[in-house]
Design a protein around this nucleic acid. Structure first.
Length: 188
DNA sequence: TTGGCGATTGGCT
DNA sequence: GCCAATCGCCAAT
């Protein structure tokens, strides 16, 4: 597992994200991520440890989950060594496992829209603050598996929806994949 | 104790 | 394309 946040963000493209729910397993292939590394003014760890962001300071591979805009949960993977705050935002997956379960959690959306975007992804997989801080590197309620199907070429762009450090090319995505969020111009 | 502020989404023009 | 909804967090009072 890469030791640098941006490298980890790229590394996670193509990996499987698996969620175990009462109804069964659900998840899919990660197709879009963003890196929020050490000293990044756009990152939640920028101002040091707080009750909300403490999971960002866990050893790489732990979940940091928070609520954005009072509306949507966001899933991050802590990305540096213990005590250093940084993470990778998981922005989209291509649903491959338990599609019917995700449709139910999302209210029967088109498959394309089930997990296209960080908030939709968390709604489809029932991810909330209860999963904050768990280890994603071993099987449990939520974990990261090995590569799914061949993932295609990886593109890189500026990150979406932030006001600080908006131009850094720290977003990674699968080129031409229809499950990636963001504007078309950023996905070429 | 309080007020401003989002790593978004979905509905409407 | 524009904008309101919605609320936990946290810096400053």
């Amino acid at each position: 597992m890469p030791v640098d946040t941006a490298r980890l963000a790229r590394f996670l493209i193509g990996k499987m994200l698996v969620r175990i729910l009462a109804e069964g397993a659900a998840g899919g292939r990660i197709v879009e991520t963003e890196a929020y590394g050490i000293g990044d003014p756009a990152g939640h760890a920028y101002r040091g440890v707080t009750p909300r962001n403490r999971a960002l300071f866990l050893e790489r591979g732990h979940a940091y989950v928070y609520l954005a805009y009072g509306v949507s949960f966001m899933l991050n993977v802590s990305s540096e060594t213990s005590g250093v705050g940084a993470g990778v935002l998981i922005r989209a997956i291509e649903p491959t496992i338990g599609v019917a379960i995700m449709e139910q959690n999302r209210g029967a959306e088109r498959v394309r829209d089930l997990a296209r975007g960080p908030g939709r992804l968390c709604e489809a997989l029932k991810i909330d603050r209860r999963l904050d801080g768990i280890d994603l590197c071993q099987a449990g309620p939520l974990w990261l598996g090995s590569d799914g199907q061949a993932s295609g070429e990886i593109g890189q762009s500026k990150r979406i929806g932030i006001t600080r450090a908006p131009d850094s090319p720290l977003r990674f995505y699968v080129r031409g994949n229809s499950f990636v969020s963001g504007r078309q111009a950023l996905n070429r």
